[in-house]
Write a protein that binds this DNA or RNA. Structure first.
Length: 426
DNA sequence: AGGCCTTTGAAGCAG
DNA sequence: CTGCTTCAAAGGCCT
């Protein structure tokens, strides 16, 4: 993948990742060869997946990289086929983003009045909505996207993977933005069933906007969950119904080019006043509820606020970004809700992705890490060690000793509680 | 209420 | 350097 050839100027740790990706890709080829031949995977769910993928892809049809009739990787093809249309439909938004991008100062000037007036005035709603990562400054990405989709020579030398299937190249926007649409009820332009019609069903993710998109009572806190950005037309394509036009990140990046360490702002607030998605309460729960209360002018006692030190979460890796984006699609296609089962499907799809498709997520993940490093220079993954109570190793071994327990079987295949065993596990 | 399950990848740590 | 462990997201399930 030519655009991944970051060896040149990227000094922010691309090399090791590229190696990893290369290895991954090599493995992937092998996996792709047999991913669809695994008899164990020819269970009910996988057949369901294959079915849904082959029919729901919106013109897909290449059948999963040589997977033949049983291929389940039409995700790639559908995504790819969606790309052109997505580009077309988001062209307006892109041009707007670019325009703003070229004049960040004006954007900044425009923005505040926009919010203060009302939320419906957002011709560029993605500016905030998009992302929980609005908190991210997007420092080096702003000029990465040109009208022709090519890289700007000034774009920090980071090879940006093109959004070939309508995915925002800087995923923060996507994975964190999709949840916005779960608040369909808030959006006058987004009928509650639109997601389902488009094959994207996001049940009960309403609370999730919280963490990643929670907006502060200050700064741009004027943006309420019902504000205009949620009225942004949803991408009409099945696999990206929740995606946002590039505008959000780009403009955000263009507008907020200064970083203040969020910790200096108290409780995870970025300079923009937007809490970083990775910042959560000590409880581990992302604090949308908390924030929501604040939005309702019911501030918590200061003591309590002070007592809650923000937890900076790890940046998402490539697969996590992919999961966040595709979860809704899988849920819709497979009518599954259990994350364990969904994640298994997503894991398989991940391996079925082409190198190019995966490369996009690796690239996005790399950017995430870069931003995370810039935002939290002193942060270490070790900081969060022990904050989650995880099963003991001993326990894990026990479970491994019984890989086909009914419980695991149910989780794996999303079976009902009544079904103790499924075929492949029997 | 909170841990488990399940996935992949990144990071930290011990040897 | 290698291998192991933990965490990141998600939401139903389970204790």
């Amino acid at each position: 993948m030519p655009q991944l050839n970051s060896g040149g100027g990227d000094d922010l740790g691309a090399n090791d990742e590229m190696l990893a990706f290369k290895d991954e890709g090599e493995q992937e080829e092998k996996i792709q060869a047999n991913v669809f031949t695994e008899g164990d995977l020819a269970d009910l769910k996988s057949s369901l997946v294959n079915e849904s993928e082959s029919t729901g892809g919106g013109g897909g049809g290449e059948g999963g990289g040589g997977g033949g009739g049983t291929g389940s990787s039409s995700t790639t093809s559908s995504q790819t086929s969606n790309a052109a249309a997505t580009v077309a439909t988001t062209a307006v938004a892109h041009s707007e983003a670019i325009r703003r991008l070229q004049d960040p100062q004006r954007v900044y000037q425009e923005k505040l009045p926009d919010h203060m007036e009302d939320g419906l005035k957002h011709q560029d709603p993605g500016m905030y909505k998009g992302s929980s990562y609005s908190g991210y400054p997007f420092l080096m990405l702003s000029d990465a996207y040109l009208p022709n989709g090519s890289m700007s020579p000034l774009s920090n030398k980071v090879p940006v993977v093109q959004p070939s299937h309508g995915v925002h190249p800087l995923t923060p926007l996507i994975p964190y933005s999709n949840e916005h649409f779960s608040h369909g009820s808030h959006s006058p332009h987004l009928p509650a069933d639109i997601n389902q019609k488009q094959g994207v069903h996001r049940p009960s993710q309403t609370s999730d906007i919280s963490g990643f998109y929670s907006l502060p009572p200050s700064g741009v806190g004027q943006i309420t969950p019902s504000m205009g950005w949620q009225s942004q037309p949803v991408c009409p394509f099945q696999s990206c119904g929740f995606r946002q036009p590039y505008t959000s990140a780009l403009t955000a990046g263009a507008s907020f080019s200064r970083i203040t360490h969020p910790l200096m702002l108290g409780s995870g607030m970025h300079t923009t006043g937007i809490p970083h998605p990775g910042i959560t309460s000590p409880s581990g729960k992302q604090e949308f509820d908390h924030y929501d209360r604040s939005m309702k002018s019911q501030p918590e006692p200061k003591r309590e606020k002070e007592a809650k030190k923000p937890t900076i979460k790890k940046p998402l890796n490539a697969f996590m970004l992919y999961m966040k984006e595709m979860r809704g699609t899988v849920i819709a296609e497979c009518t599954l809700k259990e994350s364990a089962a969904i994640n298994q499907i997503l894991g398989r799809r991940w391996h079925a992705l082409s190198r190019e498709e995966q490369a996009k997520y690796y690239e996005l993940a790399r950017k995430e890490r870069q931003l995370h490093m810039q935002l939290y220079p002193g942060w270490s993954a070790r900081d969060n060690y022990g904050k989650k109570k995880r099963r003991t190793r001993e326990k894990q071994q026990d479970s491994n000793s019984d890989p086909a327990s009914p419980k695991k079987c149910r989780a794996r295949f999303g079976l009902n509680q009544q079904m103790d065993w499924c075929g492949p596990c029997r």
